[in-house]
Design a protein around this nucleic acid. Structure first.
Length: 573
RNA sequence: GGCCCGUUCGUCUAAGGGCUAGGACACCACCCUUUCACGGUGGUGAUACGGGUUCGAAUCCCGUACGGGCUACCA
């Protein structure tokens, strides 16, 4: 149950809704306390820190009632899951886990015309990859199912009918053509997008304008109709407190009569979100900022249907922006960065949109970079494990402004995570990647050593191919240009001698190899520096990679000698 | 057009009325490194503008500008 606490501070009353406090001692956690200040913005503006502390102390003396936190992510299965969607999932997940609550996934598939085969399955795969699996969903089950709105179709109509009975909604019989005509007729320069609202509804065909028996007759004949919410006639201000933005208000006179129940009997998002959030006992509802304009409709529905005190706390997350406004998959294609979590192929067009996973991102890095796009813990820490995020996340520290996605920084996060990961844990990924390029590895221990040696040079997982292929295959080509200009007979002789020396080596390790290399150079009066680069080209093929003697050690005596001989032939031709 | 939200280095952000506005990415320079990286040191670079409140404003208030979102029987 909600416990609504009224506090009087400096002659001002504050209403504080306490979310799930299963354990009162959690109140001692300042982060948790922040969470409780439903209307902290007001407090922030008018009160001093000291007063806040007084309030805090007052709260401690109260016994908050417990209500388990339940949050939901409600995607519509119409295509790929993009950055913003995954971040919404993340914030839901972190918030739920931070408060010991549940994270629910509900499929909002009420628009049958937009149904896309495979999209739902794809969403689950993305969540699994990212490590953000729900506690309840169509796949995971739960006490509040079904979790697909299409399967809940029968539940919605009664709520719409109830609204009509109470005068908060009405039947509308207007055909699509009539609606189009209305929009055309009322369109002016001043009003380029006329709404179906209180100014026009009395000129349309609906149960407000038609006689009661006419309406009855139409309904009896099964005439196609929708149910629309009837926004209040008088100017009424709808206000709610957003966890991120503070108080937000709207004048109901400028909000239109949104359709609640469509002609096919399916609810629209507006009805479904309110009914299902209620039925599924959602305590906090997080969604993108693009939903803010329709929030007054939802608040009113809560008021009419279930009571405002039952309404979840809203948080409208800032948008993730691309180079030109709201991030779209087009931006990704245009600027060369992934937008979706995983590769998505549109089943109709066969168009492939690249995903972060396939681009070479580690799931840990992906959620880390997403978490920091709009949130920080107030310290200078930027690399967080999922566990740290769960422990530190709070909606209070989410930024209100939109964040432009920076692919360079995203790559930096991935690089940090590759460096941070143990070589062993990267083995499966790198193995699969190399196998895809025709390099099949059987020796995991060797691969682990290779990864350890090259991982700091890899920003994306896919970089492991270039950085480690030469450990498993003799270079097919050499960067001849880097060697040829300074190549001469003396160097030729040096490497011939090096082969003889290495053939006799009994102790094959980097130190011995380097010492022998330098001794022979000294005897021949050559500078080791001038010989290192050719040696590298012989072993690697190019001017990159870890220390040459480390490479020689790992590829082994036989292979090292083979590569020197082979390269010698190539350099001389 | 209307409504709503927002605005600190190019980008992500810190600073809850009080040091020289701090950090990270990117960029530049140097050091380390006989490759490429990692790492280290330093540097360039921001409170949109105008009023107000205040001893004092990035911070609170108002206005302007700019940016974004929404304006479907889509979500």
């Amino acid at each position: 149950m909600w416990s609504v606490i009224k506090c009087k501070v400096n002659d001002l009353f504050f209403c504080i809704n306490t979310p799930c406090i299963r354990r009162p001692e959690l109140l001692h956690d300042p982060g948790c306390f922040n969470q409780i200040l439903h209307n902290r913005h007001k407090l922030q503006q008018r009160e001093t820190k000291a007063t806040n502390m007084t309030l805090y102390t007052e709260l401690l003396s109260l016994q908050p009632m417990s209500k388990r936190v339940r949050v939901r992510f409600a995607p519509s299965p119409t295509g790929g899951l993009h950055l913003g969607g995954v971040r919404t999932v993340l914030y839901n997940y972190l918030f739920a886990k931070h408060h010991g609550g549940e994270f629910i996934l509900r499929i909002e598939d009420t628009d049958q015309s937009r149904y896309v085969a495979g999209a739902e399955d794809y969403i689950f795969k993305c969540l699994k990859w990212a490590g953000l699996e729900p506690d309840e969903s169509p796949l995971h089950g739960g006490q509040f199912g079904p979790y697909r709105q299409s399967e809940r179709k029968a539940t919605y109509r009664q709520y719409a009918e109830q609204l009509i009975k109470e005068g908060h909604a009405y039947y509308a019989f207007d055909t699509p053509e009539e609606l189009e005509k209305m929009r055309l007729d009322f369109k002016t320069e001043q009003n380029p997008a006329p709404q179906y609202d209180r100014s026009v509804r009395l000129q349309m065909r609906n149960s407000l304008t038609l006689a009661a028996d006419e309406v009855k007759k139409l309904l009896g004949e099964g005439t196609r109709h929708v149910i629309r919410i009837k926004m209040p006639d008088a100017h009424e201000t709808v206000t709610f407190t957003d966890m991120i933005r503070g108080e937000v208000s709207f004048d109901t006179a400028v909000v239109d009569d949104k359709v609640l129940l469509k002609a096919d009997g399916m609810p629209t998002y507006h009805l479904a979100v309110v009914v299902d959030d209620h039925l599924m006992k959602i305590t906090h509802a997080f969604r993108g900022e693009e939903w803010l304009p329709s929030a007054p409709v939802h608040v009113l529905l809560w008021k009419y249907l279930f009571g405002l005190e039952q309404m979840p706390q809203w948080a409208h997350l800032p948008l993730i922006l691309g180079p030109n406004g709201k991030l779209s998959k087009r931006d990704g294609a245009k600027y060369g960065f992934p937008v979706f979590a995983m590769n998505w192929t549109d089943p109709k067009t066969n168009e492939l949109t690249e995903g972060f996973k396939e681009k070479g991102f580690l799931p840990e890095a992906f959620i880390n970079l997403l978490a920091l796009l709009g949130w920080n813990d107030g310290t200078e820490q930027e690399v967080f494990t999922k566990e740290e995020l769960v422990a530190k996340f709070s909606m209070e520290r989410v930024h209100s402004g939109g964040a432009k996605f920076d692919y360079e920084k995203a790559k930096w996060f991935n690089h940090e995570w590759i460096k941070k990961s143990g070589a062993g844990s990267l083995v499966p990924e790198v193995k699969t990647l190399l196998a895809g390029k025709g390099i099949n590895i059987t020796d995991d221990a060797l691969l682990t050593k290779v990864i350890e040696l090259v991982k700091e040079r890899c920003t994306l997982l896919t970089d492991f191919y270039e950085q480690s292929a030469f450990f498993f295959a003799t270079p097919a080509q050499y960067d001849i240009a880097a060697v040829k200009p300074k190549w001469n007979a003396a160097k030729q002789l040096f490497f011939a001698e090096l082969i003889r020396n290495y053939e006799l080596a009994t102790d094959w390790n980097a130190t011995v190899l380097e010492n022998n290399f330098k001794e022979i150079a000294a005897v021949n009066e050559l500078k080791p520096g001038e010989l290192m680069l050719p040696f590298r080209i012989m072993l690697v093929g190019g001017k990159f990679g870890p220390g040459v003697f480390d490479i020689a050690t790992l590829i082994g005596k036989e292979e090292t000698i083979t590569r020197i001989s082979k390269a010698l032939a190539a350099f001389n031709s």
